[in-house]
Design a protein around this nucleic acid. Structure first.
Length: 121
DNA sequence: TAACTGACTCGGC
DNA sequence: AGCCGAGCCAGTT
């Protein structure tokens, strides 16, 4: 099982791991959030959460907007706010979607969590 | 070309 | 309960 997954991802990732990350990110419904790990897992690279974050970093000024502010770390913390220019931009974007943020952490993260594995299965 | 880095996560102590 | 090390991918130096 693990073996086949490895083989499979080899071809798919040639299409660009980033593209996939952005694609999934754009599917996140407004007012909902997800985590790097969830996306990574959905793409078949559970341990590449780090790379997912890196991909979002590269989405700056990319075509269809990539709602990177809806992607947080597993604790619901705005770990990437620092990369939105001003440190409060990300939070404002979230609050605009009725998502409450307290101390760099999304309130009710579990409730608002959008799992691509379940939602897109 | 090798080594380093980073918006992460998990498992072991 | 908190710290440490390892794995993952791509771009930079």
């Amino acid at each position: 099982m693990k073996q086949s997954q490895k083989e499979r991802s080899r071809e798919e990732r040639t299409f660009s791991f980033f593209e996939n990350v952005w694609a999934v990110t754009r599917l996140i419904p407004k007012g909902r959030v997800t985590s790097y790990g969830a996306i990574a897992k959905y793409l078949g690279a559970a341990k590449s959460a780090r790379t997912v974050g890196y991909a979002l970093n590269a989405c700056h000024g990319h075509k269809p907007k990539v709602p990177a502010h809806r992607v947080l770390n597993r604790n619901g913390m705005l770990s990437g706010k620092h990369h939105f220019g001003a440190s409060d931009v990300m939070q404002k974007l979230l609050e605009k979607e009725s998502i409450r943020v307290e101390k760099d952490t999304v309130v009710d993260f579990k409730k608002l969590f959008w799992d691509p594995m379940k939602e897109l299965a």
